[in-house]
Design a binder for these strands. Structure first.
Lengths: 122, 122
DNA sequence: TTATCATATGAATAGATGTTCATATGAAAG
DNA sequence: CTTTCATATGAACATCTATTCATATGATAA
């Protein structure tokens, strides 16, 4: 009895197998999408970036404001803003020497909100 | 004119300051909560864990199933399941030699869903 | 008890990541 | 054009993290 698709060697008597496996596999997005999803959450997985995003909830802020507000070096803020921008979570607008940043995606609110709900239920 | 709370050194003419800063600070959760939130997202920020969670969307699975299903070593799966369990995202149930894992929190769906929405809009 | 299997765990290793330091860029003012 | 300021960027470094390997645990069956 050949195994197509998945090779199960030992645990093929008690555990669910081929049909279940196929069912689950069919319902999953492809690897690339799952990878991108993980990459997105990775961006939220840093307290500096979370703080920056939260700060921008209220209104647009310049780099210097964020730096002072959060007590984080300007360089660090700049590096993290770049990551946030690359991931389309914030956008920037230049006004002379000053660059103002603001949120670029409504999902930021909902993603952080969902995370908070989980946190608050512990 | 003294600055209480925040010390602004240079960028205190064009950028918004004390009142805005206070306003934003007041609206932010405390550091510990923001740290916990980042820690939670860090858990979602790994494709192996994302895959495991997705696999469990359908039904409970044993370690061996997950391992075969995703093509990841049993050891790696076990390590990641521990992290997921520590963060109350999955729960386990033992049946003889076999340990079945399933989702432990409805927020898993909503968090991943929110993330997916962002991904799909690029 | 002994053998086998499913799972868990600790140590080691390689790769990723965040901050700092030094410096560059870009814009306004003198 | 030179200076000053706000921001950006690259390199270096320290820390964290995910996987692998070896092995332990816990359970069933012979």
């Amino acid at each position: 009895m050949p195994n197509d698709n998945i090779d199960v060697e030992k645990c093929d008597f008690l555990c669910v197998h081929k049909d279940t496996v196929r069912e689950v596999l069919d319902s999953m997005p492809d690897d690339e999408k799952l990878y991108d999803l993980a990459e997105l959450f990775k961006v939220f997985g840093d307290s500096t970036r979370i703080k920056i995003l939260y700060a921008l909830f209220e209104k647009e802020l310049c780099v210097c404001d964020i730096s002072n507000l959060l007590g984080i070096s300007q360089t660090a803020v700049s590096h993290q803003l770049k990551i946030l921008k690359t991931n389309n979570l914030v956008k920037s607008r230049r006004n002379g020497k000053i660059v103002f940043y603001s949120l670029d995606d409504d999902h930021v609110y909902s993603i952080i909100g969902c995370g908070m709900e989980h946190i608050n239920e512990l």
